[in-house]
Nucleic acid binder design. Structure first.
Lengths: 202, 202
DNA sequence: GTCTATACAAAGATAGAC
DNA sequence: GTCTATCTTTGTATAGAC
């Protein structure tokens, strides 16, 4: 165990924290100060600012991936596994520095012309959402309907993130998103009678 | 009719266009070039960059307000009036310079510490959405349920905007948002039998 | 009201020593 | 690998003339 993280790790931590709280337009100098590292060290490790941001986002995406998967694994039923993305959102935000809203969407919004590496990393976030939700949806609604449901759930999930940017309390937005997601799932499975249990396909 | 708009108007146009396409971090110089105006003129009229952006957003919000209201007025039924926000989104984007996603959310994302005037203008966008949707929802679901439904519709609408940032085609995202919104409305009104017509309250 | 010219500050990035 | 010191570019804003 190293009580003193390397300069590289301190840079990644600082870049992620600042991107989360201030946005990526936060000056390099602020990152350097927080990481207690000199400019030359940053450029030696990452080439330039975008390289550092990209690396920090890759690491954050991997952590989000893990957190989300854990929540899926813990969920008892297929339906709750599908809705676990909302549980994961809370846990993810609790574990890391709470961001102003979504760091990936935030960087996307602040970066009109991302380089290839950064662009790929941002796209990977959306890809992960669509792919995993489709996988989790398939047992519930069948492979045919799964992509459609996944797209709608990503829309709702993205709406939750947007509401946070609009100033809505995180828990409130998450609860409403989860509710909408549940409704959407039931609508795709087939209109159930009021109060009826979810009718699973197959 | 003035074929030559004033310098002030050219500045507002240029600021709005650039905020829509490049984000507000686009340098003042780019605005000046596009408006064919000198720096001094900008600062004489608006004090500083944020003042110009704020004024441009106020104007854009007023136009959005008008466009949306027109779509509401044209809609034949209470239900379609409620969903007219999605029609308005398309018409708004068609009329103005197509933005990368939502200009208001974009500015909010890029501006961690907005001044009071800019902050108020950004909040006014969310306020308008919540208030008008609540007004339109009341005849359908009653005054009691209207705020809840309005919040959910803003979430969905915001999700549509977020999907555009994620790279989804605007029309696709809008259609899915509208579908979700219709579903949500019916769910709040009360679970209807499959294929049943919307049961209105009162 | 608008322009030319310029001041002033901040930001990204590099050189060269240790 | 890391630091100190510095260079260059860019960006916001102002002074003073017309």
């Amino acid at each position: 165990m190293a009580p003193q993280p390397t300069a590289r790790d301190r840079l990644l931590d600082a870049a992620e924290d600042l991107a989360a709280t201030q946005g990526v337009s936060a000056p390099v100098d602020a990152i350097l100060q927080r990481a207690r590292v000199s400019p030359a060290t940053l450029y030696a490790h990452f080439g330039n600012k975008e390289g550092l941001i990209t690396e920090a986002l890759r690491r954050r995406l991997a952590r989000w991936d893990t957190t989300w998967q854990e929540c899926v694994d813990e969920a008892p039923s297929p339906e709750e596994k599908l809705l676990a993305v909302f549980t994961a959102l809370g846990r993810h935000r609790h574990a890391l520095t709470p961001s102003r809203w979504c760091v990936f969407l935030g960087v996307a919004a602040e970066t009109p012309h991302p380089g290839p590496d950064l662009g790929d990393t941002l796209a990977a976030d959306t890809r992960l959402l669509l792919d995993r939700l489709e996988d989790l949806a398939a047992p519930l609604v069948g492979a045919q309907q799964a992509p459609l449901l996944a797209r709608r759930l990503v829309l709702i999930y993205t709406g939750v993130l947007g509401m946070i940017l609009r100033g809505t309390d995180v828990d409130t937005a998450t609860a409403e998103g989860r509710h909408l997601a549940g409704m959407t799932l039931h609508a795709v499975v087939g209109p159930a009678a009021p109060g009826a249990t979810l009718r699973l396909m197959r």
